[in-house]
């Protein structure tokens, strides 16, 4: 897991639901590359290509609400997005992102300050987002859960911790 993430921001509003992130008809796939081709397609056919040019998604409240589909975080990873910073996450998306090894950061203050196209950097060790020379601290994911993220997701974690293995 990278502890330092920096890049250009694409910004969304509140309540981006998981049907928007990846439509139900594509749940027949589980591969990141295949899912990424259709990510956010409901917002426009050009969205998957457009989002590939960004590194970090910044969003408002309740990002990933709705369906528990894990492919929502997989599709975002497939786009090459390295982190999602939101004012808050829906709980199933929050879990799925950790289990998928996608970095997520809850930081309403940074979300309020950032505009689309801005650059920001995230320091996961210090728990700090830097934007325009200002720092925005955020609460770290609980240590017991962070272990899953550090190993790149739950499948890897499970493989390393199989009962009886």
């Amino acid at each position: 897991m990278d502890t330092q993430i920096a890049g250009r921001v694409f910004k969304f509003g509140d309540n981006v639901n998981s049907d928007i992130i990846i439509a139900g008809r594509y749940l027949i796939y589980i591969e990141p590359a295949e899912l990424a081709k259709h990510a956010f397609e409901m917002l426009g056919a050009d969205f998957p290509e457009k989002l590939r040019k960004y590194d970090i998604i910044v969003a408002g409240r309740n990002f990933g609400c709705g369906s528990a589909r894990e492919q929502a975080s997989t599709a975002i990873k497939g786009l090459g997005i390295r982190a999602v910073v939101a004012a808050s996450f829906a709980r199933t998306f929050y879990r799925n992102a950790i289990n998928d090894g996608l970095t997520i950061v809850e930081c309403p203050e940074a979300v309020a300050a950032v505009s689309e196209g801005d650059n920001l950097s995230i320091d996961l060790v210090k728990g700090l987002i830097t934007h325009d020379d200002r720092g925005y601290p955020f609460a770290q994911i609980p240590a017991s859960v962070r272990r899953i993220l550090e190993l790149g997701g739950l499948a890897n974690y499970l493989k390393a911790n199989l009962p009886g293995a």
Binding site: A68, E70, T92, R95
Partner: peptide
């Protein structure tokens, strides 16, 4: 409560989740 499919595998195998 809802969870993703990888986590379901994890509960199938380990019996538990956080």
């Amino acid at each position: 409560s809802g969870i993703g499919y990888t986590e379901v595998t994890s509960v199938w195998v380990t019996g538990k989740l956080w």
